[in-house]
Design a protein around this nucleic acid. Structure first.
Length: 419
DNA sequence: AGGTTCGACTCGACCACACCTGAAT
DNA sequence: GGATTCAGGTGTGGTCGAGTCGAAC
C-alpha cells in the first residue's frame, strides 16, 4: 500500500478498501466496486495521509490532513498543542457513489463534481454510506436503512454530541422547514414518505423515538464544491448539472427508492474514531460493566443497525456487531450500549443546553428504551446442530423429553400422540 | 386517587440423552 | 507422548406455571 493505486499503479491512491485491503484511486475504485453486487458492499474510506497505509478515520481541520486512528493518536494524543486540533470523523462508504456524493461525504477533502451518468450512478439507489462505525446503507433490497448524511462529527468536544443535529425522517413534515439551506437539495420533492433532513432545533415527530441518536450530526460542512473532479477522477466533467438530474444528491440523501419502512431505520451513532474514544471515556464512569464490555467488544468495526420491525411502527431493533458478523445472543441481548445510547443523556453528557428539563428528556428516553426492550426479540444461537437435530425429533410429554419407548403426547416428526 | 381484578406477556424450569470435555489409565 | 476409556457436564426444544405489567373497573 502506498501513494499509488494498487489497481492501476498510475493514479494517486485516494481511498482504502477494507475488504480488498487495497489502496485505490477514485477511478479504479469506481471500476472495481461497480463490478458486481458483492463488491459494491465493500466499505471504503480515505487513506491516511500520514502513513498512507491505513484507512483514515478522522480529518484534522488545522493540519488539513486525513489520519488513521493510530496516526491521529500519535499526532494528537501525545501533543498538548495538537490535541486541541479540531478533528472530524471521516465517513466510509460503500456502493458506487457519484463524485457529488463523495464530495458530500468528504466535503472537506474532495470537492468533486459529478461525472454524469454512469452505470454506477444508475444504481445509486443501492449506495450506502457508513458513518465509520455506523454503517448506513440504503437501497431497494436492503432492510437496514440508514439515513445520516452528515459528513462530519465533532470529536474534540464531546458536548457536541449532545447537540441537536440532523436526522432523516419519513414523516410528512413540511420540507421547507426541514431542509438545511446549505444542502442544495431540491425542494421539489413530493414524496412525503421519503426521508427528509431536519435542522437542529426542529422537533422530531413522534414516530421516531430515537431522536437522541440523530443529534450527533452536523451538516455545517456539507457543501457541493465541484472544482477538482478531473484531478480526482482523471476524466473531464461533461455536465455538472447531470449531478442533480441523475440523482446524486437525491441518492445521497435517500430521496430515491427509499421505502417508508426502510427510512424508519435511524442509524446515527458516534463514528468509529470517536466512539472508541467515547467508550474509553465512558468506561470508568459506566455503572454497567456489561454495557461497556459490549461496546468495547464492538470497537473494531461495530455496525449499528436498526432493523425496522414489521408491523410495529416506530419500533426498531438495535444491534451492534463486529465485522465478523458474529454475535452471541448475549451480545444482542440488552447489550447495554443500546441502553446507554437510548438514554440520550450519557453520563458524560452536559446539562441540557437549552435549559429544558433534563429529567423530562430522560424520562422520555427511559420510556422509549423500555418500549424497545419490551419488543426486543432474543435470538437463540444454536451451538451444536447435532443436538438441535436430536431435540427436533425427540418425543415429548407436555414439552418435556421422555425416555425412548415411553408414552408421548407430542412427536415432532409425526405430530401424533401415543395415547 | 387508590385498590382490585383480569388478561396479556415474559421467562425460567423441566425432561432425556447424545455429545463434549477433561481426567485417568 | 499418544491412544483409549470413563465420568461428569452441557445443550437441545416444547410446554407449563409463576411472576410482572398495564388496562379496565
Amino acid at each position: 500500500m502506498g501513494y499509488v493505486c494498487d489497481f492501476c499503479g498510475e493514479q494517486r491512491s485516494m481511498v482504502y478498501c477494507r475488504s480488498d485491503a487495497a489502496c485505490l484511486c477514485l477511478s479504479c475504485d469506481r471500476n472495481v466496486h461497480s463490478a458486481n453486487a458483492l463488491s459494491k458492499r465493500h466499505s471504503r474510506t480515505l487513506i491516511c495521509e500520514r502513513c498512507n497505509s491505513h484507512p483514515a478515520s478522522v480529518r484534522c481541520a488545522e493540519e488539513r490532513i486525513s489520519l488513521c486512528q493510530n496516526c491521529d493518536w500519535m499526532g494528537h494524543g501525545t501533543s498538548t498543542s495538537a490535541s486541541t486540533h479540531k478533528r472530524q470523523t471521516i465517513n466510509s462508504y460503500s456502493g458506487c457513489p457519484s463524485a457529488s456524493e463523495l464530495s458530500s461525504i468528504w466535503s472537506f477533502v474532495l470537492n468533486v463534481p459529478s461525472r454524469g451518468e454512469s452505470t454506477c450512478e444508475q444504481e445509486l439507489g443501492l449506495m450506502s454510506i457508513a458513518e465509520n462505525s455506523a454503517t448506513i446503507s440504503w437501497g431497494p433490497t436492503e432492510n437496514n436503512i440508514g439515513q445520516n448524511a452528515s459528513g462530519v462529527v465533532e470529536v474534540n468536544d464531546r458536548r457536541e454530541i449532545a447537540k441537536p443535529g440532523v436526522w432523516l425522517e419519513t414523516s410528512s413534515i413540511p420540507e421547507s422547514s426541514s431542509v438545511p439551506n446549505n444542502l442544495d437539495q431540491p425542494t421539489k420533492s413530493t414524496n412525503t414518505s421519503l426521508p427528509k433532513l431536519y435542522c437542529p432545533g426542529t422537533k422530531c415527530p413522534a414516530p421516531y423515538e430515537d431522536a437522541d441518536f440523530y443529534e450527533d450530526f452536523n451538516m455545517d460542512e456539507m457543501d457541493m464544491n465541484l472544482e477538482h473532479y478531473e484531478e480526482l477522477f482523471g476524466v473531464t466533467l461533461n455536465n455538472s448539472e447531470e449531478l442533480f438530474e441523475n440523482g446524486g444528491i437525491d441518492s445521497l440523501f435517500g430521496t430515491k427508492d427509499m421505502s417508508a419502512a426502510d427510512s424508519n431505520c435511524q442509524g446515527a451513532v458516534a463514528a468509529e474514531g470517536s466512539s472508541v474514544g467515547l467508550v474509553n471515556a465512558i468506561q470508568p464512569a459506566c455503572s454497567n460493566a456489561a454495557s461497556a464490555d459490549s461496546m468495547m467488544s464492538t470497537k473494531t468495526e461495530p455496525v449499528l443497525c436498526f432493523t425496522p420491525r414489521a408491523g410495529v411502527p416506530g419500533h426498531a431493533n438495535l444491534s451492534f456487531s463486529g465485522l465478523t458478523g458474529e454475535s452471541s445472543p448475549g451480545d444482542y441481548q440488552d447489550c447495554g450500549a443500546s441502553s446507554m445510547l437510548l438514554m440520550g443523556e450519557p453520563p458524560w453528557g452536559p446539562p441540557c443546553p437549552d435549559g429544558s428539563s433534563p429529567s423530562g428528556n430522560r424520562s422520555d428516553a427511559v420510556m422509549r428504551y423500555k418500549e424497545k426492550k419490551k419488543t426486543r426479540k432474543f435470538e437463540k444461537k444454536v451451538r451444536y446442530a447435532s443436538r438441535k437435530a436430536r431435540a427436533d425429533v425427540r418425543r415429548r410429554v407436555k414439552g418435556r423429553f421422555v425416555k425412548a419407548g415411553d408414552a408421548y403426547d407430542y412427536d415432532p416428526l409425526s405430530h401424533t400422540r401415543s395415547f
